[in-house]
Design a binder for these strands. Structure first.
Lengths: 243, 243
DNA sequence: GAGTGGTCTAGACCACATG
DNA sequence: ATGTGGTCTAGACCACTCC
């Protein structure tokens, strides 16, 4: 790391866009101008622009230029479980809420169809199951069931479960979390969730199912997060390839 | 177009992955082998792999190889308003439902803060506003308010509104739809929505807000889609850049 | 140390948009 | 016709993994 130029280009342009130097619907400098400015080649600039396009900042058009499509939104407090790979405390911080977590269940078990159907874990994989109640400003907002593969992530304890598993995985173990596949839906709260979230039984709540992969390419975690309607939100950029 | 090699590489590998030729958690052939196989350079292969990584098919790792992380899911009927840029009839087709649309409102107006706050349209932009009720297998599943810029998309009629605006925009006008920014949330149904969707007033429903950009980089459409809980679902792949 | 992915340069050519 | 983004080659070097 450090020798890489394109993240710097992307970051700098992103900052300029967010600061208003390149307003919504305006054109960025041409690729050639950016090459000169950053003293690098076509390819490096394009790599940076590609990243900005994928994250919804710009839209390039052949023969015309690169248009800025980002604009400030009333609610930059990105949704839970989206956009990046935010953790509960990060989301709360972004929204100005005080996060708290209660650990309700901490147990060891093995992957099988009964515990978690279609999980993607090989039969018999040793797992840690945690159920955590997420509380924001004193209001219970989500019940999360996390299943973590002990093969990939050994040594999780109850303390770590409370202190933040991602900090442990990335900080202590040095394993990078790279890709997550998520499914959003609405489900009815069961009796237990309703009790924990102080909702009438049978209420509709948002469910976020995440399958997360670390840098080795192994699936190391499956999360089922059930959130109260007021808390749930997610922001996504969809791009369609051009062929 | 047509001379491009990387989409072919991506498509072929995608097909092989989906067919099981490269199973979940296995390694793909090395980049060098792929270069030989497709008779092209490093860069072209990497471009293809990049696309597969962004869509959750593979995860490359420096020094190790490219791991397959895609696996068949019980529900490949991708969610509404996600993943690609699917239209209502497409989603219904994928789920084996019979789509029907009722046009409730069709009117011309101008963008201003009262009509649609924070819309991203410049004040005074001429718009077409359509309200459509989406029905699947006889069940009303969504109420959609669509605001389309007449500056970008001229000549929308009530017939087109019923027959599919995307078909008109892409087919007839030849304008490509490339990027869409979407926000998912849960909101309470107002009296009108509740009536149309046959729900008790005040029920929670899913809301999808889309801001869509065409190939010129202009925002040409804003959609507010409010969906019954049973219909809503969305699938997303989130990747975190490595720097 | 050998093999793998990650980044970059330099240069070429093509496709498209605009005047 | 000119200028823009889009793709590709050829080759280099680096960072990382694994034996």
């Amino acid at each position: 790391m450090g020798r890489s130029i394109y993240p710097k280009i992307a970051q700098e342009l992103r900052k300029e866009i967010r600061s208003g130097a390149h307003p919504f619907q305006s054109l960025l400098p041409t690729e050639e101008q950016l090459c000169e400015r950053f003293g690098c080649s076509h390819a490096a600039v394009r790599r940076a622009l590609q990243e900005l396009a994928a994250t919804g900042y710009v839209q390039p058009r052949q023969g015309r230029g690169v248009t800025v499509i980002w604009r400030p939104e009333r609610d930059e407090t990105a949704g839970y479980a989206t956009g990046g790979l935010e953790t509960f405390p990060e989301i709360c911080a972004a929204r100005g809420l005080e996060p708290k977590t209660k650990l309700l269940v901490f147990e060891h078990l093995q992957a099988d169809e009964q515990v978690l159907p279609e999980s993607g874990f090989a039969e018999g994989t040793p797992l840690v199951h945690m159920r955590r109640l997420r509380i924001a400003d004193g209001i219970p907002v989500a019940v999360e069931d996390t299943f973590t593969s002990e093969r990939e992530i050994p040594g999780i304890t109850e303390e770590i479960a409370l202190g933040g598993t991602y900090a442990y995985i990335e900080g202590t173990l040095g394993i990078e979390i790279l890709t997550s596949r998520r499914t959003f839906s609405m489900v009815r709260a069961d009796a237990e969730d309703a009790r924990l979230l102080a909702l009438p039984a049978g209420s509709y709540i948002a469910q976020v199912e995440s399958h997360t992969f670390c840098s080795t390419g192994a699936q190391f975690e499956v999360i089922l997060s059930r959130q109260i309607p007021e808390f749930f939100s997610a922001r996504v950029v969809v791009t369609r390839p051009r062929h």
